[in-house]
C-alpha cells in the first residue's frame, strides 16, 4: 500500500467509529433509564429516571468523543516533539 492510502485507512479507522460509539452510548443510557423506571421502580418514578439516563447517555457519548480527540492530540504532540528532537539532533550534528 502506498503512504497516502495507508494514511487514508488509518484516518478512517481513527474517526470512523465515532458515530456508532456515540449512538450506542446514548442507547445504553436511555435503555438503562427505561429499565430502572419500568422494571425496578414499577413506573412510580415514571419519566424522570428515563430523562436522567438519557442525559447520562449523551454525556457518555461526548466523553467518548473527547477521548478520541484528546488521544489524537497527544499522539500528534508526541510526533511533533520527536520530529523537533530529530531536527535539533541533525542541526547539532551538522
Amino acid at each position: 500500500m502506498s503512504d497516502v492510502k495507508k494514511e487514508f485507512v488509518q484516518l478512517l479507522a481513527n474517526y470512523g467509529h465515532i458515530g456508532f460509539t456515540f449512538v450506542s452510548a446514548i442507547l445504553i443510557g436511555l435503555g438503562g433509564g427505561i429499565y430502572l423506571d419500568q422494571k425496578v421502580f414499577d413506573g412510580r418514578t415514571a419519566p424522570w429516571l428515563t430523562f436522567l439516563g438519557l442525559a447520562f447517555g449523551i454525556a457518555a457519548g461526548y466523553k467518548t468523543l473527547f477521548e478520541v480527540v484528546w488521544r489524537n492530540r497527544r499522539a500528534e504532540e508526541k510526533e511533533r516533539a520527536e520530529a523537533e528532537k530529530r531536527d535539533g539532533g541533525g542541526g547539532s550534528g551538522g
Partner: peptide, 9 residues
Amino acid sequence: ISNFARLLS
C-alpha cells in the same frame, strides 16, 4: 455507560 457502550459498538 461508556464502558458498556464499547461492548455494543
